[in-house]
Design a protein around this nucleic acid. Structure first.
Lengths: 334, 334
DNA sequence: TTGAAAGCGCTAACAT
DNA sequence: ATGTTAGCGCTTTCAA
């Protein structure tokens, strides 16, 4: 079995070229003039030896790893996938790399991973925790590592926060329907009364008020977040004395469930009843009718995060808070 | 603005605890007995200083970075996302981390990234190139870095290959339909005549032969890979004199297009015509009717890749070739 | 234009 | 049970 051969280092190159390591180093970095002839010999030696610089050693000196960590509950979630993509969009050209970690929303694992990233001396951390606390990243902040939190988090000292503006997008979705003349608008939201879903409902209420439409609590139904829950919520809505002519669902999967019910009852979408969702998941485009949805731009979010991180690595202070909106993707269902 | 404070090192701990660095090191690693009292003092010093070991320095000595790179065309592609997930499933518990890189199928970028990973001295590389050559990873192999290629690649010296068995899954899909009594089975495939799509068609032909069903070339139509292409292919199939009672599509998106056409023509699926796809994308479950599809198990593939890599890092030789099958996800459409 | 040598933080012979 | 010290491969003063 072929043992891994120790790669040749700068010293081997120096020996081969008959110069000092210093000269090789400078020949590589260009930080100091090197005689053309010398440069030539060094280049030859490098080629002959197949020399590859060792970033580890460089990092050791420079105290920079050119690495940032992306810590998320589950990279399989399309939202995080796109965030990762956006992050890499910015990182790769800057010669940074991204370490991706899944936490499965396990607080213990979150802690361990953050710890691990500190020991690896990453230059920055993008963290998306499942719960609403930032103790997780406290060690990183203490270690002076630029950190940004993704999601619905309140700002904490020393950490940037990037999140989507759920209130605004809830309001935008509602305004869109109001603009189409709908006045009885239902909302299928999550059972729990906090976080993004709650914000969206608040936005919905804000928009209704703007249009002078009285709030009707019966039109806001809670159901499990999922396809079945959406179907169930839709039934509850349609069974009312004055059923809504439009329904906003807390996310696309729930909306797909709502469409199931509409189909079941022979309702035409969006003519008999309009349906909207949030997130613009891939499937929103593939189902029939296509789902009108509020798209968060996770890739852009990732890019923003990377940019913030890179700036902070370069010495910019934490900015504490940024918001990114969502945009409406109008399709057949509303 | 708070400059990043240099983290304290093992020497600081040693000084604080009044022992030598060696003792601290061994106290940490347990590779040498340390008196209980000493261990105690070291622990205190560590706590007081908030000491975090520096993995970089460790890697420097051990020549191990506990890092593997995953290089793919686009992490946004659900297949690769799941592969990444599977990889991390295995890597994380082993205290390895994964660096994820997008190549956008750009050969130049592929090269650069592989190069970059070599300089970072990753312990292993999982590579999925877009094209059918392995020159990309040659430098890594030359550097003695365990490398496995994903996808439809022929084995090359020193690199493992993990791919899905497209011939087998094409055959399995066909056998499933044959088993349900279908004898006129259409196939909508990609325009190009090679790679996974071609393999699937070959599997289809193999299965038909097994059942003594004569091959009818008219039943294999080529169409652009996409929803529209699927719709188009389906039309071509249904317009024939003896239209098929079942249609296999080269992937799920194409199948969704085929379903569009079926719906358009008022055909009941799967009663009037059965439809199958490949890949089991998320949407396959969300559309109506649900799509019957051949699921490749990308997460399992990722796990397999990581396991191979870890073994190779531990000295196992390259095995050149492995195959993972696909499994049938039976749903309403076939 | 070029070198010598001191570290970056850690581990592991090789002492004691 | 504990300490001294030589590197791992590189960059960078400081000198020539």
């Amino acid at each position: 079995m072929a043992r891994r051969p120790r790669p040749s280092g700068i010293a081997d190159v120096a020996a081969r070229a008959g110069v000092s390591v210093t000269t090789v180093s400078h020949s590589l970095s260009g930080r100091r003039p090197v005689a053309e002839a010398t440069r030539q010999r060094v280049a030859e030696a490098i080629a002959e030896l197949g020399y590859q610089p060792n970033e580890l050693a460089r990092s050791m000196r420079s105290q920079r790893t050119n690495t940032v960590a992306l810590i998320v509950p589950d990279i399989t979630n399309p939202f995080y996938t796109s965030v990762a993509r956006g992050l890499l969009d910015v990182l790769t050209p800057a010669s940074y790399v991204g370490i991706v970690c899944n936490t499965d929303a396990d607080p213990e694992l979150e802690q361990k991973i953050v710890q691990q990233m500190i020991t690896r001396r990453v230059d920055g951390i993008a963290f998306s925790g499942y719960y609403e606390h930032h103790d997780d990243v406290a060690p990183a902040v203490a270690a002076g590592i630029p950190t940004v939190m993704l999601g619905h988090h309140s700002p904490a000292p020393g950490v940037d926060v990037v999140n989507s503006d759920d209130h605004a997008s809830g309001a935008d979705a509602t305004r869109y329907l109001l603009g189409k003349g709908h006045r009885k608008i239902g909302f299928i939201t999550a059972p729990a009364g906090s976080g993004a879903p709650a914000e969206r409902v608040r936005g919905y209420q804000t928009a209704l008020s703007e249009f002078g439409v009285p709030l009707n609590n019966n039109l806001v139904v809670r159901a499990p977040v999922g396809r079945d829950g959406g179907a169930e919520g839709m039934r509850a809505l349609l069974d009312q004395d004055e059923p809504p002519t439009a329904v906003i669902c807390t996310n696309d999967i729930v909306a797909i469930g709502a469409l199931d019910t509409a189909r079941e009852r022979g309702l035409q979408v969006p003519d008999d009843v309009a349906v909207m969702g949030f997130d613009d998941i891939e499937a929103a485009r593939l189902i029939t009718p296509q789902l009108t949805t509020m798209a968060y731009a996770p890739r852009e979010i990732g890019q923003a995060v990377a940019t913030i991180l890179l700036n902070r690595i370069d010495g910019a202070p934490a900015t504490h808070h940024r918001r990114r909106g969502a945009r409406l993707m109008v399709r057949e269902s509303a």
